[in-house]
């Protein structure tokens, strides 16, 4: 299946915008991705192996966190996985540099 890599993480994946990996589940796809590109690991996972809170993973158009089987969800070669770091912020507590 195809794993889409967001702009800021491509430098850790040989500058590729997508990586094809063999996988039967979402979890296997992510494991294979970091096995092939180990530098991605610290950007995706905490030191205790959990996905970082700001890293969103979508199977096609579905947030994996809301799928019944989460990372154990079965995938096919035609599915695509997208890694999407969160985008947020706001003006509170602004400060001048």
């Amino acid at each position: 299946m195809k794993v889409n890599i967001p702009t800021p993480l491509r430098q850790y994946a040989e500058k590729r915008d997508a990586v094809d990996v063999p996988a039967k589940t979402v979890g296997e796809a992510l494991s294979e991705l970091v096995a092939r590109h180990p530098d991605l690991r610290k950007h995706l996972y905490t030191s205790d192996g959990k996905l970082r809170s700001f890293v969103n993973v979508y199977l096609n158009d579905e947030d994996v966190r809301y799928l019944a089987d989460k990372e154990a969800t079965i995938v096919s070669d035609n599915d695509s996985l997208s890694i999407v770091p969160s985008i947020a912020g706001g003006s509170t507590h602004w400060r001048c540099k």
Binding site: P8, P85, I87, G89, S91, W94, R95, K97
Partner: peptide
């Protein structure tokens, strides 16, 4: 940019 902007920036 605010502290919130920096804390929440990951790209």
């Amino acid at each position: 940019w605010s502290n919130t902007d920096l804390q929440e920036a990951h790209w």
